[in-house]
Amino acid sequence: MPGGRLTQQDRQRIATGLADGLSYAEIARRLERPTSTITREIGRNGGASGYRPQQAHQATVQRARRGTPAPPRATGSPDGMIEEALVEMAVRTGLPRMTARVHLDLLLSEEGRRTAAELTQRLKISPASVSVAVNFLVEQGFVRRERDQHRRRDVYVVEDEAWYNSIVTSRMQTLETAQVSMAAAEAYGMESPVGRRLARAATFLERISLDMIESADRWRALLT
């Protein structure tokens, strides 16, 4: 059923789509699921080249047992190498390593959500470390906090719109740079060498910022 957990039939259709060379977005469209759900499902179950629907379903059933820690990854295993590469990539962009690990575990979870206790047990880190990481992710808009009223606990959920918001923020920063550059060009004189150089840069950055938001708006639906 669209919006619920992936079924074994869904996973077979994912495997068929991969075999047919379909994109993750197209597979998601056919299953009426968010692209992020398909990305997480494939990423945590062998990747596009190693995805096996039966094994993926069995692994998900095992992971669904509450309190079950994440399966250990052999250092040289394909999944372990992929996850480490993703963490390293996030660290290179400026994300603290522990925060990157927490974010990745949320991204690769079946429903894109976990409690603080689950993150602590799965990643084998202290509650304080989890608190610092999720607070940072919430502040940056990558994760949202929901309240489980029945058990009186917080649940942390991946915010798929964060990628769109990140583009919008980047676009605003680029546009501000363009505006400052143009003001500086006018101050130096538009006919001076410095003024012309700054004006060219300002025009370039302004056009780039417009292209960024147009592209983000065009493809935003892929995140839902």
Rank of each mutant, 00 (worst) to 15 (best):
residue 146 E to Y: 03
residue 123 L to H: 01
residue 167 I to T: 02
residue 135 N to V: 02
residue 101 R to L: 14
residue 107 L to K: 03
residue 25 A to R: 05
residue 137 L to H: 04
residue 52 R to W: 06
residue 98 M to Y: 04
residue 29 R to G: 08
residue 128 A to P: 00
residue 32 E to G: 02
residue 116 A to P: 08
residue 93 T to N: 04
residue 99 T to A: 04
residue 126 S to R: 02
residue 37 T to M: 11
residue 61 V to F: 01
residue 129 S to D: 08
residue 158 V to C: 04
residue 141 G to D: 12
residue 32 E to L: 13
residue 101 R to Y: 07
residue 104 L to H: 08
residue 144 R to D: 14
residue 49 S to A: 10
residue 65 R to P: 01
residue 58 Q to V: 14
residue 159 E to D: 12
residue 103 H to L: 15
residue 26 E to Q: 02
residue 83 E to F: 12
residue 166 S to L: 04
residue 120 T to I: 07
residue 109 S to E: 15
residue 71 P to H: 09
residue 69 P to E: 05
residue 137 L to Q: 07
residue 168 V to W: 08
residue 32 E to H: 07
residue 162 A to M: 00
residue 135 N to C: 05
residue 132 V to C: 07
residue 87 V to F: 11
residue 125 I to L: 07
residue 136 F to T: 13
residue 33 R to M: 12
residue 147 R to E: 10
residue 161 E to S: 04
residue 37 T to C: 13
residue 100 A to I: 06
residue 152 R to P: 00
residue 77 S to P: 06
residue 160 D to C: 06
residue 127 P to D: 10
residue 164 Y to I: 07
residue 43 G to Y: 14
residue 153 R to D: 10
residue 93 T to D: 07
residue 61 V to G: 03
residue 127 P to Q: 03
residue 23 S to D: 11
residue 112 G to T: 03
residue 77 S to A: 14
residue 152 R to L: 12
residue 90 A to M: 12
residue 166 S to W: 00
residue 87 V to M: 11
residue 110 E to P: 01
residue 34 P to I: 11
residue 83 E to Q: 14
residue 94 G to I: 01
residue 61 V to K: 12
residue 51 Y to M: 00
residue 67 G to V: 05
residue 151 R to D: 12
residue 89 M to T: 15
residue 139 E to A: 09
residue 159 E to R: 10
residue 126 S to W: 02
residue 41 E to D: 14
residue 22 L to D: 03
residue 148 D to V: 02
residue 37 T to A: 15
residue 101 R to W: 05
residue 95 L to K: 01
residue 168 V to N: 05
residue 140 Q to N: 01
residue 105 D to V: 00
residue 60 T to R: 14
residue 35 T to G: 01
residue 88 E to D: 13
residue 87 V to W: 10
residue 49 S to T: 11
residue 144 R to I: 15
residue 146 E to R: 05
residue 90 A to E: 13
residue 120 T to P: 00
residue 37 T to R: 13
residue 28 A to D: 10
residue 136 F to C: 03
residue 167 I to L: 06
residue 56 A to K: 06
residue 29 R to I: 05
residue 118 E to I: 02
residue 56 A to F: 13
residue 92 R to G: 03
residue 87 V to Q: 11
residue 75 T to A: 15
residue 60 T to P: 00
residue 53 P to L: 00
residue 53 P to Q: 04
residue 112 G to N: 03
residue 139 E to V: 01
residue 121 Q to P: 00
residue 156 Y to F: 15
residue 158 V to G: 01
residue 32 E to A: 14
residue 104 L to R: 12
residue 165 N to G: 07
residue 131 S to M: 05
residue 26 E to W: 00
residue 151 R to H: 11
residue 151 R to K: 08
residue 92 R to A: 13
residue 28 A to R: 03
residue 65 R to N: 11
residue 77 S to I: 10
residue 64 A to S: 14
residue 163 W to D: 12
residue 46 G to P: 05
residue 157 V to F: 07
residue 96 P to V: 05
residue 111 E to D: 15
residue 150 H to R: 11
residue 155 V to T: 13
residue 63 R to L: 10
residue 72 P to A: 06
residue 69 P to N: 03
residue 68 T to Y: 00
residue 62 Q to C: 05
residue 113 R to I: 05
residue 100 A to C: 05
residue 47 G to K: 07
residue 41 E to Y: 13
residue 140 Q to Y: 02
residue 66 R to N: 09
residue 64 A to M: 11
